[in-house]
Amino acid sequence: MSLAEGNELREVNETDLVDVGGAMAKWEHFPASAILHHGKPCCRVAREWIFSTDYSQLNGENPLTGPRWLRLKYKWGASVWPISWCEAVRQKTLDCGALASMANEVFVMRGVKSYPAQFIQQYTEEATRHWRESWTDGNASDHWIKDDLIYHEGCAVVVREGEIRLWDASAGWWMNPKQFGGYGGLVALRVFAPQAEFSWGAHRIAPGRWQRIQNERQGLALASAG
């Protein structure tokens, strides 16, 4: 964000202005979402369909290819939890937890190491107010919203030994390891994995705990509009 003061632009690190600490505390005890299995044919059919469809959709490409087809099949929106496989596959909309959980299982089924990942992202209060209303209308909990911050889920996909990429299953893209803060910026991350530490771009990620994501823009000099 740039604040105009006279003829100068002053660069402000927005993450200093938002309550990232409060958000991490709010979602400290949030487990990563997991879809239930009824242990019956209904859920077996659902899972077989997901995995066979994924292989078809992969089209012979690299197994590290993001399963973007899930997002094409399911619109992002409110889900009512708990949710089972047989229910989830029949929905028109799924929330980030359900999409991330599905994507995670898909990666694992392909033979790729993938772990649940939790994100805290910054948007605007206008955006979060809108989402809060939509979720309330859908009888779903809005516990994932705090001021202009949101709780979000994805997958930490191991691309090489000790190195991960973050798949945002709701957006259908890989998150940029160079974070600049601001709208859509990732301010904190938690990965649930047994390994000691991962690298994500220039970041070192210690699994099992929330950690703030450093803003890349801090190293740049300030531009003058004068």
Partner: peptide, 15 residues
């Protein structure tokens, strides 16, 4: 693509 389709078909058959 055909060979991928074959592999894909085997998975569907197994399911």
């Amino acid at each position: 693509q055909w060979w991928h389709l074959y592999e894909s078909m085997l998975r569907w058959c197994r399911s």
